[in-house]
């Protein structure tokens, strides 16, 4: 058995020496991706923070919470499956995508109008933020509605459109899950102050120097 410097590795009971070649994997051995949006504080716009791999949206929420909100203050989190988000083309940093793209005719319509969430990217390399909610019967109509309602505010380089029902939103009563995050100082740079120790050490060296 492999004896490692890491007692955890030793406990894995790995054979000593080279392992046989890995078994070929099944066709797909990874979960689907979900996109995460994070709200810094009450009233702030939800902002895109990144994806997670998960088997469903509840697990995606569990994952996103720790991957994307274990540090900064957080008052809410949304997750949506990547494949549920419609994405416009990207335009240049000084352009407005609503002016550039031709809004297409819907391919599919729902019988009843339903809410959609709209996210804007203001500048390439930055993160999409929530622009607002519109009611529509298709993605295309939602995009048209979005253009009408919030499409004239400065450069918008890209838009994401997703049905509200496809967004898992953290519940109001679950906010206490983030209550103590700002208090976890041990994982903040500000908790480590050693100047005093260094100064003291230097002084001691001076006084004992020949």
């Amino acid at each position: 058995m492999l004896k490692s410097l890491d007692p955890r590795v030793t406990r894995l009971n790995l054979p000593e020496g080279a392992l046989p070649p890995a078994e070929p994997k099944p066709v797909l051995d990874q979960f689907e991706t979900y996109e995460t949006f994070h709200q810094k504080k009450e009233g702030a716009a939800y902002t895109y923070v990144g994806p997670v791999h998960a088997p469903n949206e509840e697990v995606a929420f569990l994952f996103s919470k720790e991957q994307y909100s274990r540090r900064a203050a957080c008052s809410g989190m949304w997750v949506a499956r990547t494949s549920h988000i419609m994405v416009t083309p990207y335009v240049g940093d000084d352009e407005n995508v609503y002016d550039v793209i031709r809004l297409e005719e819907p391919t599919e319509r729902s019988e009843q109008p339903e809410p959609y969430e709209i996210f804007h990217l203001k500048k390439r390399g930055k993160a999409h933020t929530h622009a607002g909610r519109v009611v529509a019967t298709s993605y295309q109509e939602a995009l048209q509605e979005a253009k009408r309602q919030f499409g004239d505010k400065g450069p918008i380089v890209n838009v994401w459109v997703v049905k509200s029902k496809h967004v898992l939103q953290s519940a109001e009563e679950d906010k206490d899950m983030w209550l103590t995050v700002p208090e976890k100082k041990y994982r903040e740079a500000t908790a480590y102050k050693v100047m005093d120790k260094i100064t003291k050490y230097k002084e001691e060296q001076k006084s004992t120097a020949p």
Binding site: V59, L62, D174, W178
Partner: peptide, 18 residues
Amino acid sequence: LKGEVKYHVLHANTWIKN
């Protein structure tokens, strides 16, 4: 600290159910 444990339970129960 209750809120932290609430997440732990949500995590545990979700996994077991799944």
